[in-house]
Deep mutational scan, measured.
Amino acid sequence: TFELKGKVGKVVKIAEDHYLVEVEGDKWIAYSDEKLSLGDRVMVVDVDGLKLKAKRIP
Score class of each variant (00 low, 15 high):
54 A>P: 01
58 P>V: 10
8 V>F: 11
13 K>I: 08
13 K>M: 11
40 D>M: 09
33 D>V: 09
28 W>H: 06
34 E>P: 02
47 V>G: 04
16 E>T: 10
56 R>M: 06
13 K>D: 10
37 S>G: 11
39 G>F: 13
34 E>C: 08
19 Y>S: 04
15 A>N: 13
43 M>P: 00
38 L>W: 09
27 K>S: 11
45 V>K: 02
12 V>L: 14
29 I>A: 11
20 L>W: 13
5 K>L: 15
8 V>K: 08
43 M>T: 07
2 F>S: 15
1 T>N: 15
1 T>S: 15
9 G>Y: 02
36 L>V: 05
10 K>F: 12
29 I>V: 12
45 V>T: 09
39 G>L: 11
16 E>P: 12
33 D>H: 08
40 D>H: 06
1 T>A: 15
39 G>M: 11
38 L>I: 10
31 Y>G: 07
11 V>M: 02
22 E>A: 07
21 V>A: 04
31 Y>A: 08
32 S>L: 03
32 S>D: 02
34 E>W: 04
7 K>N: 04
48 D>P: 01
40 D>A: 07
32 S>Y: 01
20 L>C: 08
43 M>D: 05
45 V>H: 03
21 V>L: 14
24 E>I: 08
56 R>T: 04
13 K>E: 11
44 V>K: 00
22 E>I: 13
38 L>K: 08
38 L>Y: 09
36 L>M: 09
17 D>P: 11
20 L>N: 05
34 E>H: 08
18 H>C: 10
1 T>W: 15
17 D>G: 12
58 P>R: 07
34 E>Y: 05
44 V>T: 02
5 K>S: 10
1 T>E: 15
14 I>A: 12
50 L>R: 09
24 E>A: 07
27 K>R: 12
11 V>G: 00
34 E>M: 06
35 K>R: 14
7 K>G: 03
37 S>C: 12
10 K>I: 11
5 K>T: 14
41 R>E: 14
5 K>N: 14
53 K>S: 04
10 K>M: 12
48 D>C: 15
55 K>Y: 03
52 L>M: 04
6 G>W: 03
45 V>W: 03
22 E>S: 07
6 G>M: 02
32 S>Q: 02
43 M>C: 14
35 K>E: 11
23 V>D: 02
49 G>S: 04
57 I>M: 10
43 M>I: 13
51 K>Q: 06
58 P>H: 12
57 I>Q: 06
54 A>V: 15
4 L>H: 03
39 G>S: 10
45 V>A: 05
54 A>E: 00
12 V>H: 05
16 E>H: 12
38 L>H: 07
48 D>L: 09
4 L>T: 08
53 K>Q: 04
56 R>K: 09
17 D>L: 10
33 D>S: 08
43 M>N: 03
3 E>Y: 06
32 S>V: 11
27 K>V: 09
31 Y>I: 12
25 G>Q: 08
14 I>W: 09
42 V>Y: 01
17 D>A: 10
4 L>G: 14
26 D>H: 14
53 K>L: 05
58 P>E: 12
10 K>R: 13
34 E>F: 04
13 K>A: 11
37 S>H: 13
40 D>K: 02
47 V>F: 14
15 A>M: 14
30 A>E: 00
3 E>D: 06
56 R>Y: 06
44 V>F: 15
39 G>D: 13
52 L>N: 01
54 A>F: 09
41 R>N: 13
24 E>R: 03
24 E>H: 05
47 V>I: 07
51 K>C: 09
12 V>W: 08
2 F>K: 15
45 V>C: 08
17 D>V: 09
25 G>E: 06
55 K>S: 06
35 K>C: 10
7 K>R: 05
15 A>V: 14
48 D>V: 14
40 D>G: 05
44 V>S: 01
49 G>Y: 05
35 K>S: 09
1 T>V: 14
9 G>R: 00
36 L>H: 02
8 V>H: 11
19 Y>H: 02
13 K>S: 11
7 K>V: 03
58 P>L: 11
12 V>D: 04
30 A>G: 11
15 A>T: 14
57 I>G: 03
22 E>Q: 07
